[in-house]
């Protein structure tokens, strides 16, 4: 890796760190972060495949209330760097996925540190607000964001500082039963993310939808887009029938209050604007 590539890797890491807290552009999601690391290091294919694998694991990771999710940013950036430096090609993806998990935990502690520092920063903002100096508030907001960026950029730079031969040596020490076992674990660990999501969404009303989805997925001819279309249609049909009050148990009353409500959420949103 040459100097320009290293700088670009650190930049991508910085971006991922910022996004890890902002959660807007999704530069911290494995699919984007690993692809970008692959792109700047000249291993685009590897980055994309690793990103896809990690994304499947991280699908359900989200910070909700008190539930703290593992940190996708450090996991994606660091495991992508390790994979590129290992020189193992696609064979190393299973191991990189396994390494990503402890890194996700480490990232969690780093973000807690920065969030604690931010508590001090908002006190400085308080003082600036009293003096009406909005420029300083803006500046401190940026400092806080940059600290979150450094949270990933610094570990990435440290990883780059380790010569790739050392990384290869360490990975070479791992026996095959361990790497194969980790690949198997990686394929199963996806379930945790899904379980987190289900626990948040599940209600009596939506379980039948889950059962239909599970049963239909066994039909391998159906692509993900087809399944999505079926799911969306079922939900729309359910809501439409409900608002028409097909079983005549008073549900119809609520919809008659609102003439514009066609029972089509998407259509209603479009009508509203």
């Amino acid at each position: 890796m040459n100097a320009i590539q290293m700088i670009l890797v650190v930049l991508v890491a910085f971006l991922a760190g910022m996004e890890g807290i902002l959660d807007e552009w999704q530069f911290h999601q494995p699919l984007v972060a690993c692809t970008l690391i692959g792109l700047v290091t000249g291993h685009l294919d590897l980055g994309i495949i690793l990103g896809g694998q990690l994304q499947m694991i991280a699908l359900g990771w989200a910070n909700i209330g008190a539930a703290v999710a593992p940190d996708a940013a450090l996991a994606s950036i660091a495991s992508a760097i390790i994979l590129v430096e290992s020189g193992q090609g696609t064979k190393g993806i299973g191991t990189a996925t396994g390494i990503a998990i402890p890194l996700a935990v480490a990232g969690l502690f780093l973000t807690m540190v920065v969030r604690t520092i931010s508590t001090a920063i908002v006190h400085i903002m308080d003082a600036d607000a009293k003096k009406a100096s909005w420029r300083k508030i803006n500046m401190w907001q940026w400092i806080a964001v940059c600290l979150q960026g450094l949270r990933i950029a610094v570990p990435a730079a440290l990883l780059l500082a380790i010569p790739s031969t050392t990384v290869q040596h360490w990975l070479g020490l791992m026996p095959t039963w361990l790497t194969q076992g980790m690949s198997i674990g990686g394929a199963m660990v996806v379930a945790v993310g899904y379980a987190m999501v289900i626990n948040m969404m599940a209600s009596k009303e939506v379980w039948p939808f889950f059962a239909i989805g599970f049963a239909l997925a066994a039909v391998k001819d159906l692509t993900l887009i087809a399944l999505g279309a079926i799911g969306l249609s079922l939900a729309l049909m359910y809501l439409a029938l409900e608002s028409k009050g097909g079983n005549g148990n008073g549900k119809g009353g609520s919809s008659s209050n609102d003439n514009s409500d066609t029972g089509d959420p998407l259509g209603d949103i479009i009508d509203d604007y």
């Binding site: 899904y194 969404m201 599940a202 939808f209 889950f210 239909i212 997925a217 399944l227 079922l234 939900a235």
Partner: peptide
Amino acid sequence: GASMMGMFVLGALI
């Protein structure tokens, strides 16, 4: 509606 579609897709993803 989102929860319904979400649960459907989750069943498929699992």
